[in-house]
Amino acid sequence: MALAKRIVPALDVKNGRVVKGVNFLNLQDVGDPVDTAIAYQNAGADELVFLDISATLEGRSTMIDMIERVSSAVFIPLTAGGGVTDLESMRAIIQAGADKVFLNSAAVSNPELIRQGAELFGSQAIVGAIDSKWDEIEQKHRVYVSGGTKATSLETTNWAKKMVQYGVGELLVTSMNTDGTKNGYDIALYQELDKIINVPIVASGGAGKLSDFSAVFKSGHVDAALAASVFHYGEIEIADLKKQLHSEGMVMRL
């Protein structure tokens, strides 16, 4: 028996509050990260990802405080990141109770950060996050940084492989082509990664309906599928999704 496929809701956090309205919960205060996290845990989420979009140091410290509060009340794996540039913030995030921290732009400019993080906290705690976009002219997947605003010269699968060599224990790969479209995950991208990558891959970007998850697991061979708005707005219930995938023969934690 293989491991259960993981369903991972992602939450944007700004100054210690969940933003981008989570409105399926009927919470009195929709921005409360603890209530939101508990609701997702109870709905059957296998893991939670927190993306810090705070631009300030103060925002970062309220993020740490938030992780502490969430991890006191929620007993599933937590991944956090966004704008992480040094070992100190990695340490603060992990000490606050996150199981994994993800690195994106900072790893591109300083891949040694991956190695240092993996040495200090173990590979299982370091997730390589990649924003990838298909380059029509060069016919390759290209890595973007700074929240998808800056193109790099890196090719996605090469960079993914390099991140694994530097020591990440998991990859979180977002396709900018499909992100926000709700037209399904970028299956071709994950098929390419699957051929050469031997750490778990989390697919991100494009979830719109139940069958999108089914496709990315079956054809994209990913280990986990991340989504935000379809869960936040109650368009897809996690429990229904997992039951459906289970009925299609996938290993799911029900």
Partner: peptide, 15 residues
């Protein structure tokens, strides 16, 4: 063991 289809580390939910 790094058997076919089993990534190492085992990271995730098992029954």
């Amino acid at each position: 063991p790094a058997n076919e289809g089993y990534k190492v580390p085992q990271m995730g939910w098992n029954q």
